[in-house]
Amino acid sequence: MKKTDEFAGILDECVGRLLAGESIASCLAHYPEHAAELEPLLRAAEKTVAGLKKVRPREEFRERARYQFQAALREMEAERHRPLAFFPRWAVAVSIVVVLLLACTGTVVASSGSLPDSPLYPVKLAAENVRLALTPSPQGKAELIARFAGERVKELVKLAMKGDGTLIAVTAQRLERQLTAVADLAAGSKATEESGMRLMMAPAATAAPTTVPAPSPTPTVSSGDGAPAHEQWGDIRNAKAGKNQKLKELLAVQVDENLRALEAALESAPESVRPSLIQAIEIARAAYAEALARLED
């Protein structure tokens, strides 16, 4: 037994050397008395290690993953600086609900033009979600989200003028997510429930919602009125193609106006935010194209 332990220790040391790049011959030279027993094992280990060393993530995946990680980092940074960052999230959510109930005070109206760096911005997002929740039809929801996407573009233009590259990236991600939700809703796909639910939940949780679509399990939360999410969104699949026409027209108008607005902003934006804005334009262009393409399907 002890002898076996001793050999396992020697084998491990040799494996460590192999992993560090040493040759089998060099390892065996340290233990000539065990060479016969070690060699075939080290050959198997070397073959395995060599096979694994060749395994590398695909370059396009590596780039995509790095971009999404950096986007999540930027969002985390933005969230850290949000005005209510020191309060528990549930308290923020409750506060937002209270604020919404007091909408007659004008707070919601005042928040409508706010930007992501504004203390009123969470109110603006919460108000959007309330409107979304109060809209019964999938078609109506899709149109509403498309209009919210237009609002994101306006924010991007203003943020470009302010020179805030970090919030441009965060807002672009939010725009992309909304346009994906529009397409999902219109297509009545299974993804609808997930993307829709993420949109519904994100602003209640934070002023800067998660930018990276986490491959989370199917949501089981109800949307607030007690009805299971799948029931609320299930009738989406029955949407008729004709009903998408209005949405297509809306998006077609938006894609022209919004991309033109973003490109105009690019011309006058400070040099420091141009890369972020170019990225945002690419995201918007691709997301609109994807949404329109899916509506055509």
């Binding site: 084998l11 491990d12 395995t48």
Partner: peptide, 20 residues
Amino acid sequence: ENAVKALQHSAILALRRTLS
């Protein structure tokens, strides 16, 4: 650590049989 070394040993033995 000893248990892991023993597992590594038996694993490499099994890999050797499978691979070659």
